[in-house]
Amino acid sequence: MPIDAAQAVAAEPRSGEITWDRKDVLLYHLGVGAAANPDKRSPATDPDELRYTLESRLHVLPSFATVAGSGSPCVISSLSMPGIDVDLARVLHGGQSLTLHRPIPVAGTATATGRIAAVYDKGKAAVLVMRTEAADADGPLWTSDAQIFVRGEGGWGGDRGPSARLDPPTGAPDRTVERPIREDQALLYRLSGDWNPLHADPDFAKVAGFERPILHGLCTYGMTLKAVVDTLLGGDVTRVRSYTTRFAGVVYPGETLRIRMWHTPESTRVAVSAAERDDAPVLADTIVEHS
């Protein structure tokens, strides 16, 4: 079996220094749709968007943690850790969670430590939980878990792991917004460090079973968090405490995200779908915890 669960979990963590500056933050924000908000008459110069696009007003959307320092130790590099030898064409990002220990600075240097926290056997697939912890001189910054599905690598009789499924929200959503995805959104987003050809190469996408390149799940993840922050949290990124989602389906560049939000003072449940495909699910079991 290309995945040795015991060896992968027992492997020594990999640590490395990551750095980022305002240019990285600005590029990431553009990659998740900043200055393209259709609700604004002039989004490129709207004060609410300038918080994402102008260095003199800049704050950092917390989901930037998934790409800070080009995402190192990144998901692709983690797939080469001891006990893991898989075909990239069989790999899908199944879910993502992020816990913020304090606001992310506009520029910084930190130590990122990555390891395989768990390996689960889902029968037809294996799930790798790749944990990254980042800290700088002032202490912990964030902890993130990426759940990676490797199709065709399950069935060895291992632990199935916990279920990520939640009961659906009840009642009508408090807010619903739509966010169009540019045709070149994946090409722009990948400049923040996720170079998986699945998001750019039509031939590779077909080998992986898709009609054409798909948008990065983490791009949808960032676009969704921005919508929640802007719509329900007064544009205050420092209110976000944690953010968890399950990637329920693909989305293609050129489509429109329909983002439904059920809001309470301490958390917001979110469901995201592809508007043009009869609201096909894109993100599910999604929770933003906040102050």
Score class of each variant (00 low, 15 high):
116 I>V: 15
3 I>M: 07
84 I>E: 00
116 I>A: 09
75 V>D: 01
11 A>W: 02
288 V>H: 08
109 T>V: 04
34 A>Y: 08
50 L>V: 02
20 W>F: 01
66 T>M: 07
96 Q>F: 11
130 M>R: 12
54 L>D: 14
119 V>R: 07
43 P>D: 08
154 G>E: 07
46 D>W: 15
61 L>P: 04
153 E>C: 07
279 D>T: 04
29 H>D: 05
208 A>N: 05
271 A>S: 12
249 G>I: 13
196 N>T: 11
236 D>H: 05
151 R>P: 12
167 D>V: 08
145 D>G: 05
150 V>W: 02
287 I>N: 04
225 L>N: 01
136 D>N: 01
14 R>Q: 08
62 P>Y: 03
248 A>T: 12
14 R>T: 09
61 L>Y: 00
240 V>T: 13
227 A>W: 03
254 G>L: 00
192 S>H: 01
158 G>P: 11
117 A>W: 14
258 R>H: 02
116 I>Y: 00
74 C>R: 03
268 T>G: 11
132 T>I: 09
281 P>D: 10
223 M>C: 14
83 G>D: 04
182 R>P: 12
182 R>Y: 05
167 D>A: 13
17 E>G: 08
126 A>P: 08
45 T>D: 10
25 V>A: 01
26 L>C: 07
164 A>Q: 11
157 G>P: 03
65 A>G: 11
82 P>S: 00
21 D>L: 09
48 D>F: 15
249 G>V: 14
208 A>R: 02
94 G>T: 06
242 S>W: 09
74 C>I: 00
237 V>F: 05
54 L>K: 02
263 H>W: 13
229 V>M: 12
133 E>M: 01
269 R>G: 08
228 V>I: 15
130 M>F: 04
43 P>I: 00
175 R>M: 03
141 L>W: 08
54 L>R: 06
285 D>K: 11
267 S>A: 14
144 S>E: 13
42 S>K: 10
258 R>L: 09
129 V>R: 13
75 V>A: 02
228 V>S: 11
26 L>F: 00
107 A>N: 11
112 A>I: 10
155 G>L: 02
46 D>V: 11
134 A>V: 08
